[in-house]
Write a protein that binds this DNA or RNA. Structure first.
Length: 510
RNA sequence: CAACCUGUAACUCAAUUGGUAGAGUACCUCACUUUUAAUGAGGGAGUCGUGAGUUCGAGCCUCACCAGGUUGACCA
């Protein structure tokens, strides 16, 4: 292992610390009685509460002035300045604690605990006057030091995306807005969970390893169980298992599920992603629209205190009611072309005039989807429901109650992206079998994303499933909107990446 | 998978028509008891992503490879 100069210096410092009899990685709990943010927020109001404080965190700045120094400590809530004077932390004859330990052997990034009282410096900064300083954990690698000068210019920012994603621990340490994004993501999920739990729906867990993958159109990851000597797939959706639970008699079930799709990676796609699926018995897709509108209005308000969220240049408003179009209406609205009565040949012609590229294999439903994707989706900024999807695109959705060839389905779009997909669940087992068989045909023709036929799921439906509506919400996509993040990698703590190249191994010495 | 861009000190970036490798921060030494990008003085630090080629001479030109990014195609 080859070390940089700074890593060597820190290891030497560690050794000297231990030679001085100071424990660099003490075992004992360090009692903390307040947080940096609490001090900054409340010291002006109530100075007496901060005369005997104890805080812990990383040392992030050191400004040595001789016999006194200023430093900054960072805990999970923020930073605060420390005033460290020699004669306070080392009151006796032996000034080792200050002259040697603090000044020379402590580095930026070390975890320390301090006890003392809060005061204001003559420049007005709220500062902890340190009476006692304890090393809690020595850091052996230098953190990137992000500094902001008096003109507001940021120096040496830790911005390289690769390094940020690979070393998220460093990213979280030095970039407070990154920490905030993940706090927001967590709050968003909590808000959804509370909203659904409050209505009596049950949070459940279903298998990730599935012998038959289903519930979506996608290519799966494959794996193998040794004892069973059997192939398994990592789930691409949890839909079919959740509906089995509705068959089993639960009124409402939901799951925040990690799903896996063996497809391309991009700003909007990670091989593993989180989807929340909810199924509610005795409801239909129109009920679900009302429900989800209310839930997202709640989520936005919980996160931002308002239904409005700034996303890039757009101010997105989740206030009810959202715009609703059928797919045909939306195409008519945004292209001026009414395709509702067109057959496949007329559709192909219409697509050509709209400059939407098609290929020969596409059927009627797929062509409509292409026109929509090209001409309508990019224009959907505010939350919008699109309903009534072609039946060919929706093998698990119930047939439309009045329109031949359509289904009882909606997708919601926001900031030019689909964020959820829902339908009145197909509960006619005969129809479902035919839809699966149609999918098998597609698979035989080379469609790698075609669904498999799931006999056990059909058996469940044959026992009877009540009318049910279900929804899948892309949690990562929604988090991107709610946290104003341009890339999915910014809302995943550890986005998937190519394996890090090992450092060049030095030629073995013989 | 395709096009384009990037790779120089621990970090952020320079380097003229191809001619001895530079700055700020960080690091090390010294001074300094209200600083805040602390300051002042001094010092060390680089296989220029890897490999080949052109050339008297390559950080710079050519080719291949590696890594990363951006955009596009498919999928949530």
């Amino acid at each position: 292992m080859s070390l940089t100069e700074q890593e060597i210096v820190r290891r030497e410092a560690l050794q000297k610390i231990q030679e001085l009899g100071v424990e660099a990685y003490p075992a004992a709990q360090y009692e903390v009685n307040t947080m940096t943010a609490d001090i900054k927020a409340n010291f002006d109001e109530n100075e007496n509460n901060f005369q005997n404080i104890s805080i812990a965190g990383r040392l992030m700045q050191k400004r040595i002035m001789g016999k006194a120094s200023f430093a900054e400590i960072q805990d999970s809530k923020g930073r605060i300045q420390l005033y460290v004077s020699r004669d306070d932390i080392a009151p006796g004859e032996d000034k080792m604690l200050y002259n040697t330990l603090f000044k020379k052997l402590l580095d930026i990034g070390d975890f320390i605990g301090v006890k003392g009282f809060v005061f204001k410096t003559k420049t007005g900064e709220t500062t902890v006057h340190v009476k006692e300083l304890t090393l809690l954990s020595k850091s052996l690698r230098p953190l990137p030091i992000v500094k902001t000068d008096s003109d507001g210019n940021v120096h040496d920012a830790f911005t390289d995306p690769e390094l940020r994603y690979r070393m998220r621990y460093v990213d979280l340490t030095v970039n407070p807005e990154v920490r905030n994004t993940f706090i927001q993501r967590s709050k968003m999920i909590s808000a959804m969970r509370e909203f659904m739990t409050a209505r009596g729906y049950l949070e459940v867990e279903t298998p990730i390893l599935q012998p038959i993958y289903g519930g979506a159109s996608a290519r799966p990851f494959k794996t193998h169980h040794n004892t069973l000597d059997q192939e398994f797939y990592l789930r691409i959706a949890n839909e079919l298992y959740l509906k089995r639970l509705i068959v089993g008699g639960f009124d409402g079930v939901f799951e925040f599920a990690k799903d896996f799709r063996n497809e391309g990676m991009s700003r909007f796609h990670n091989p593993e992603f989180t989807m929340m699926e909810l199924y509610v018995a005795y409801t239909d897709v129109y009920w679900m629209m009302d429900f989800v509108e209310e839930m997202l209005e709640h989520v936005a308000t919980q996160l931002h205190g308002t239904t409005e969220v700034q996303v890039g240049e757009n101010l997105i408003n989740f206030q009810r009611p959202w715009k609703r179009y059928t797919m045909y209406e939306s195409i008519k609205e945004f292209t001026g072309v009414d395709i509702s009565e067109m057959d496949e040949a007329a559709l192909r012609n219409a697509a050509k005039e709209l400059h939407v590229p098609l290929d020969e294999t596409m059927g009627r439903g797929k062509i409509i989807d292409e026109i929509f994707g090209e001409k309508v989706e990019p224009l959907l900024i505010q939350p919008t429901f699109i309903t009534d999807y072609p039946v060919e695109l929706s093998p698990l959705a119930k047939k439309h109650r009045t329109h031949e060839g359509l289904t009882e389905r909606f997708e919601a779009f926001c900031n030019q992206k689909e964020i959820m997909n829902a339908f009145s669940e197909l509960n006619d087992p005969i129809d479902q079998r035919q839809r699966f068989e149609a999918q098998l045909e597609l698979g035989k023709r080379g469609d790698e994303e075609a669904m498999q036929l799931d006999e056990d799921y059909l058996r469940a439906l044959e026992f009877g499933m009540p009318p049910t509506s279900g929804i899948g919400i892309g949690i990562d996509r929604l988090a991107m909107v709610m946290t104003n993040s341009p890339s999915i990698q910014d809302v995943l703590l550890f986005p998937q990446m190519r394996l890090e190249q090992p450092k060049k191994v030095e030629e073995a010495e013989e």
